[in-house]
């Protein structure tokens, strides 16, 4: 009830426009505006593009790092695995308010943390105000997000790797495979379903959870010049309004429903495509 009501309500609202009482039924006109009117279409496609980039970067950077760390942590003879695991997970527990604050402080050109470190390394001249440049802001925010959330895929991979039966690994070892090959040939195929799961969770989180961090670091206008704008921030601005801009419930609901369909397509592809294939491998 609590979960489904908002969806139905936003689908309903997206078919109306402001007017007398509850509004005027306009059919799909709002969707036409969203992709047709330059003001809306520009923002929509820009946010969509940034979301796609965000997703790609998380898949290519975050998840491999998480998998690599999980693989190392799952080595049975490794000492201190629990400590490492806790350390890696710590950033995930933090509130985005502090994460935003501390990374802005670290990356700031004014307070000298990164510039001093880079000078020490002898690469000081490469320092740039990354969060403030259109060309680098999105990747910088993504890296911060990866820093914070790598713990989650790490944990899922780790749980899956530990679930690989000892006998299977033992058998492979007897066959003369070393640790590296055991990972590639034996463990990885077995945890493919988890890879798929992480992929889809990354996809969903990318459209829903990315909002908080970007809002806290780059603000509601997702600067500079909307270069870090994602569906979440776009939706927030549209639905609730931002500063001089008043909120528009109906366009907000339209953006929300569009977001809903985008995620729906992704999840369906996963459920009916990727997951079936993965299960075939599994058995």
């Amino acid at each position: 009830m609590f979960a489904i009501y908002p969806i139905v309500e936003s689908l309903r609202l997206s078919l109306y426009q402001a007017g007398e009482g509850d509004g005027v039924f306009v059919g799909l006109a709002n969707y036409a505006r969203l992709v047709g009117e330059p003001y809306w279409a520009e923002q929509f496609w820009n946010a969509f593009k940034n979301n796609v980039l965000l997703f790609a970067m998380h898949m290519l950077i975050q998840n491999p790092i998480a998998l690599a760390l999980a693989a190392l942590l799952s080595i049975p003879t490794l000492k201190g695995a629990a400590t490492y695991r806790t350390i890696f997970f710590l950033p995930t527990l933090l509130s985005v308010v502090v994460v935003g604050f501390i990374w802005q402080l670290i990356l700031s050109p004014l307070w000298g943390v990164t510039p001093a470190f880079m000078n020490w390394l002898g690469v000081g001249s490469f320092f740039k105000p990354w969060l403030g440049l259109e060309s680098t802001a999105l990747i910088t925010v993504t890296l911060i997000s990866i820093w914070q959330y790598v713990g989650i895929p790490l944990m899922l991979f780790y749980a899956a790797l530990l679930n690989v039966p000892e006998e299977t690994i033992e058998a492979a070892r007897i066959d003369g495979l070393n640790g590296w090959w055991i990972f590639w040939k034996v463990k990885l195929p077995l945890i493919l379903p988890t890879l798929g799961l992480v992929g889809i969770l990354t996809y969903i989180g990318n459209f829903t959870a990315s909002f908080d961090l970007i809002y806290s670091i780059q603000g509601g206008l997702a600067g500079p010049n909307f270069s870090t704008d994602v569906m979440g921030t776009f939706l927030f601005r549209t639905f609730f309004g931002f500063q001089a801009q008043l909120g528009d419930v109906h366009m907000g609901a339209t953006v929300a429903s569009a977001l809903f369909f985008i995620i729906l397509i992704g999840v369906s592809l996963y459920l009916f495509g990727v997951q079936r294939r993965l299960q075939r491998y599994d058995h």
Binding site: F2, I4, P6, A256
Partner: peptide
């Protein structure tokens, strides 16, 4: 599917509706 639908829309969107509820 119904349950999975729930993950797709940030529940935050329904804030006003939820508050009324």
């Amino acid at each position: 599917l119904y349950l999975i639908l729930g993950i797709m829309v940030p529940i935050r969107l329904g804030t006003v509706a939820l508050l009324q509820l």
